Simulated scan of single mutants.
Amino acid sequence: MAGSSGPVWSTPSILWLSRDDDGSRHDGFAEYVCTELRDQGKPEGARVIIKVWSHQDMLRDQLTETGAHTCK
């Protein structure tokens, strides 16, 4: 997918994703990822934090959070 990179588990309970930074928040995307994790077998009650970062800034070794959600 252009403008993004693959997911990275920074810890066993924190998943990092990157997306093109279009100036909007990507909290809804992070929430969608939680739904997908649950559909793929994430145990009920297992807490996972999804962080979405600006892809453009990551290419410059900078971190700008553009979205987040905590899966419960």
Rank of each mutant, 00 (worst) to 15 (best):
P12K: 14
Q62W: 08
A30H: 09
L59T: 13
S54R: 12
D22Y: 06
G6R: 10
K42R: 15
V52F: 00
F29L: 13
D39P: 02
Q62T: 14
V8T: 03
G67Y: 01
D39H: 09
S4L: 04
C71N: 02
L63I: 10
D21R: 09
D20E: 07
G67D: 11
R38D: 11
D27F: 00
I14Q: 15
G67F: 02
A30T: 09
R19M: 14
K42F: 07
V52I: 15
P12A: 10
L15G: 00
T70C: 04
V52K: 04
V8S: 00
V8Q: 11
L59F: 01
H55V: 08
V8D: 02
G67S: 07
G6C: 03
F29H: 06
L59A: 09
V8A: 01
A30V: 09
E65G: 15
L37C: 14
T11Y: 03
R60V: 05
G67T: 10
S10D: 04
W9D: 00
D20V: 12
D61K: 14
E65Y: 13
V48N: 08
A68I: 07
L37V: 15
D61Y: 04
E44G: 10
Y32D: 12
M58C: 07
G45K: 14
A2P: 10
R47S: 11
T70R: 10
S5Q: 12
L63F: 06
V33N: 07
F29A: 03
W53M: 05
E44P: 07
L63G: 08
S24I: 00
D57F: 02
T35P: 00
V33T: 04
M58A: 01
T64A: 06
D57W: 03
E44W: 07
W53H: 05
I50Y: 00
Y32P: 01
I50M: 06
G28D: 15
Q40C: 06
A2V: 13
M1V: 13
D39E: 10
H55F: 09
E36I: 13
R47Y: 00
K42A: 07
S54V: 00
W53Q: 09
L37S: 11
I50P: 04
K42L: 15
L17D: 00
W16H: 12
G41A: 01
G41S: 05
L59C: 03
C71A: 00
R47E: 07
S13H: 13
M58Q: 12
D22P: 09
